[in-house]
């Protein structure tokens, strides 16, 4: 699950309420409102996070 750092507490709080442990990839906030150049950094970070999370 990809979450921005700002919304990580919401994800964790809701996960706790549902008694699940999400595998989180946290990227900088925001996602909405970014132009293509700005979004590229988030894509890099999320792909790196996914790679790390799935090769552990």
């Amino acid at each position: 699950m990809i979450a921005t750092e700002t919304f990580k507490p919401l994800v964790l709080a809701q996960a706790k309420a549902r008694k699940v442990e999400p595998k989180l990839i946290v990227v900088k906030h925001p996602i909405g409102g970014l132009n293509a150049d700005e979004l590229r950094e988030r894509i890099e970070a999320a792909t790196k996070g996914l790679s790390e999370a799935t090769t552990r």
Partner: peptide, 19 residues
């Protein structure tokens, strides 16, 4: 379905294509 969510995922998919 929020703005840029699809674009973020599309970018990740494209990068995964290298692996």
């Amino acid at each position: 379905s929020k703005p840029n969510a699809r674009e973020l995922l599309a970018g990740i998919r494209e990068k995964l294509g290298a692996f």
